[in-house]
Every structure is written in C-alpha cells, then in structure tokens.
Design a binder for these strands. Sequence first.
DNA 1: GAGCACTGC
Length: 705
Amino acid sequence: MPSPSPPPPPVLPISEHEDVIVAAVDANPVVVVIGETGSGKSTQLSQILHRRGYTRRGAIAVTQPRRVAAVSVSRRVAQELGVPLGDEVGYAIRFEDRTSERTCIKYLTDGVLLRESLSNPELRQYSVIILDEAHERSLNTDILLGLMKRLIKDRASDLKVLITSATLDGLKVSKFFSGCPVLNIPGTLFPVEKFYSTERPTNYIESSLRTAIDIHAKEPPGDVLIFMTGKDDIDKMVSKLEERIQNLEEGSCIDALVLPLHGSLPPELQVRVFAPAPPNCRRFIVATNVAETSLTVDGVVFVIDCGYVKQRQYNPSSGMYSLDVVQISRVQADQRAGRAGRTRPGKCYRLYPISIYQNEFLEATVPEIQRSSLAGSVLYLKSLNLPDINILKFDFLDPPSRESLEDALRQLYLIDAIDENGEITDVGRVMAELPLEPSLSRTLIEANELGCLSQALTVASILSAEITLRSASKDMDGKRKRQELPDGSGWGDHIQLLQIFESWDQSGYDPRWCSDHDLQVRSMKLSKDVRNQLCQIIKKIAKGSTDVHARKSRKSDPDYRKLRRALCVGYGNQLAERMLHHNGYHTVGYRSQLVQVHPSSVLEGDEYGKFPMYVIYHELICTTRPYMRNICAVEQAWVEPILKKLEKLDVNKLSGGSSAPKDSELLVENKQVNSLKKDMDVKQSEVDSKIQAARERYLARKGKK
DNA sequence: GAGCACTGC
C-alpha cells in the first residue's frame, strides 16, 4: 500500500554540513560548493536555504544545463517537501512553466534565467541564485557567471549566489569572485580502480573489443559502459562485439546483451538501456558522450574509455565550424570513470597510458564559449544595457579570444543589430527578444516589413530545430521507399524547408506524414513548438498574419522573392559570391573563404548548370572540404547594400575603441582570395566537364517535365 | 556526392 506521507529526506553528505554552508552563505555574497555525484547538492542546497529563511524576501533559483534535469530534480524536491509540483516548488523550461505566485524554490534551465534577466536585469524576484553543474561550462552558464559577478556588486547586500559543481576548479572560481569561500562536500561514489594501457592503441575499436571480451570472461557480473566517439564507431563495435561473444565457448560465460546508445537513436531504442538487465546477463552499452553526463545508466560497474570525444568547434577567422575527434580532458576522463562507481566499487580501463593522462590531456575541456560563434551572446549582452560595458573587456571566467568577439561584432553590424560605433540598434533590441540565432531573428524583422512574416516564421522554426533530411535515392532497393519531398522550386534549401513544413501543416500535422517522408517526428514537433513560441513573441509587432498558410503569399509571389529578400538581409553576414567560371563560391566578408555548395543542397543551376551569382548560407561546415549548408539564391541588387556596409566596416569603432586605421587586413585577404581564385581556375577543364554534366542533367529533367 | 558529439532560449 502506498504510504500517504512523503518519503523522509535521505541522509545525504550535504545535510551534515548544513551549519557550515549556512554560515558561509550568511557571511558571503558568493560561495562555491564542490560536491561530487551523490552529495545531494542539487536537491538539498535549495531546501537548506529555504529552511533557514532565505525565501522570505525572494525565491531561490537553481539553474540546470538541461531541461530533463530541471524537471526531475524539482519533482524530487517537491516530493521531499511533500508539496504538489508547481506550488512552492516548481520548474521553468522552454515551452513549459510550472511555477506559481507561491513558488519559492524554482528550478530552471540557465537559458531560461538568461531570458528572465532580459526583462528584469537585476533579477529582483530572487534572493538566492544557485548555478548548478557549473563545471559543465555551458555557454549560458559562463555568461551567467559574468553577469552574477556584476550583479553582486549592484545588489551588494541582498543577493546570494552559489556556484556548485562536481569537479570545477574551485580556486579559480574563488579568485574570479574575489576570494569567496570554497566548500567541499564529499560524494557517495564508490572507489573506481583505474587501469591504463602501456601505449595508445593504433585501433581503439579493436582494443576496446579485446578489453570488453576480457572483462566478460574474467570479471564477476556487472554491466560494461564503453565510450566511443560517434555513431559509426558504435555500430561497428556493436556488431563486432556480438560476433565475438557468439564465438566464445558455450557455457564459459554468462549471457550478454549489447546495446548502442547515442543521441540520434530513436527514443524507443534509447530507453532500452534503462530497462534492468535480464537475470544472469551482462549488458554492454556502447555509447557516445550522452552517457557521460546527460544519461545515467544503472548497473554499470566497468567502464572502457577510448580517451577521445567528438567536438564541434568554431573558427572565428573563417566563420567555419568543424566536427573534430579530440582528446578528452582529465575532468572528462574522471567523469567517465565515475560512471563505474555509482552502485558499488568499479573498474575503469583507460585505453591510453597514464603519462598521456597526466601530460597530454588538458585539465578541463575547453569551455563552449571558446568554441562557438558569439554573435548571439554578444547581442544578448548588448541588449542588457549594462552601464559602462565594453564587450571586449567583459569579465568572463575564461574570456573568449579577441578575434572571436570581433567576429561577433562584425556579424552583428552587417545585419544592423549594432551601428558603426558598436551601439545596439532598435532592430538589435527586437532581435535579442527572439530565441533564435541572430541571422534568423533579423530575417523575421525584415520579413515583417516586406509582408512575408508567416513564411519567415516557418523557415526560422524549422532551421532552429535542425531538421535533417536523409537522401531519398539511396533506399530505393527493398523496403518502403520514402515519399518525395518538395524541392524548394530550385531556389534552395530554405524554400524547401518552408515547403516541407507547409505540406506537414496541410496533412493536419499527421505524425505518419513525417515517417512517410523519413522525417523525425520529434524534431518536426519541436519546430512546431518553436513556431508557436515565436508567434507569441512577435505578435506585438506583427504587421501581417502569422498563420502557416497566410492566404495570399504563394499566389502573389510564386518565386518567393519577398522571403528570399528578407533572408538576404538576415544573412547579410553569411553571403557568398560565385566564381566567374565555375560553381565554386567565395564568402563575402571580412575574410573570404573558398567554399562549395553542399551536395545535399536542392539549389538548382540555370540552363547552363551554373548556380546563382549570389547565395546566402545558414552554416559553413568543414568536413572533407569547406561546404555551405542550407543555401538560398538571392539577387545581386539585394546584395549591394551589404557590400556598401562592408566597405565602411571598421572593427575598432565597433568595439568601442577610438577611431583607428581601417581594416587593412581586408585588402590583403582579398588579394589572397584572388590568387586562390586563379588557382582554382587552373582546374577549369575539370570543372567545365562537371558543369557540362550538370547541364545534361538539367536538360534531362526539363525534357521529362 | 556526403556522413551528423551534445545541449539550449
């Protein structure tokens, strides 16, 4: 029978330190709390401060980097306090606010707290702000850290900030907050014994395979968690491991079950790892980084760590992203090892020598703020109107490079979010209100002026949900063939995405329509939610309908000229010009790059197979080559104003410095581009034949029609 | 003709 009273709060290590914690918080505006997994910091700190009266003059906010964590931790705390969720204890995440006027302990994602501070920069509703899991150093957490440093000065006596983390370098954070106290709370993790390889394996799949089989043959029951870098490696590993296990002598080992685990796995397959292992069976979970922090798999006693991770990085000098396999950090390695010690003492097999761990691994992972494009964050900070703020001197725990900040300023200037002196514009203020990348928010504003808002809302939503289209041609043979998707009418990928969403809308948002077209229902639903949220925000200034099928749009503008024009303004910082003689492009801007149209693009060439002279792109991604991904054709006349702005661009003025000589580097860069262009023209014959082939395909298509 | 680690407003 279920007991009517809530379960008693568990005795966690943190409870024994209650007096110390409260004394430290009473006496200091900022306190750092280092607590390992199982210390109870996420659930107990807020309750302790609530008990001690800190909620009398404001609520306690606890930020989490992930939505699921905000929901599950708040649910736990409500349960422990014996109150319904949404009353005294609640949570707020995007699309969902379960708080009320009575809420005094509020769990929220750090992104939501940043949004709140946009309309209420002093965050007066809170008496305490706890930044949890700060060691993960998400972009948003880092910005909050900088803002908190300013806030405690402004709100001197009455705001309390706690920075809590599992492994954060406490001394560094303490220095950042002018020597605030650091409290260490032990966790409840069991010891994990670590084993190192004598050298780096040449093939770490083979090496982890051997280790896994070894564990299976010699070690007592307990699940094995294997960290790999990506889906391909995981799939290989899973099939090889199954094969080897089958080849083992019958009766020599207990049963085994091999399960893959990564983010792109459909949810129904992901949840398999949460089901308990069948009796007398060892599970092998082959996973990416999801298993490092986001998902916790119960029953793991052995960890195999290849020592690598796939990381997305942004290069501010080229504006290009790349996805690289890099060495993990010591913090990451320890986090992975810790996954073996949750239920009993465990073992971690590291496929690298201890010398590499000690001498080659970085202490901590490079924080996201040093690996991302900062246009959105810089715009956000500018919109807060902080007094005497110089973005280049903003006090970050780990400042991004000057180059990266200047890159952000240049981008913002080109899309009118800041003026030539670096001051935020009226357009920029509206942009900052929208939960979108700057290019997309600028597109919305322009679309509103041009009368194609409803289309732009759709494009922005679907792009921010990162819908991926799988190519249709491959799965011809055999099973269910995917139904044809719209083709963007030749104008490019943005238009195709718009058409896709409109078709889905016409199907009455039927999930089957998504699966018939090989689209993930999950991400399509997300884009619908995003669209609704954007409509809510923009309705104050909307000049036309925001309905998906605003009546006249298609008929009066069959070539999507208005929308493409809005996109051209929005993506003024992501513009490319085609080479004179072939289908390569060079980006237009501070530093010109040679790039190509991504093969997945639906952009069409003209009757000679030539692509349009100008296109805008959503993203530059360097894989085997530098590619533009998600492209839309624009017209030369629309590009002129951007080229004019580029001429005037002076980054010294943008960054608030005194006037200095103009970017002389730009001229040098342009010369380099010209010489590269020549270099590419040498291979003209090669290119010509490709153009010829494209032309033939084009004519063949025309013939069919 | 390519290939996608993970989050979040």
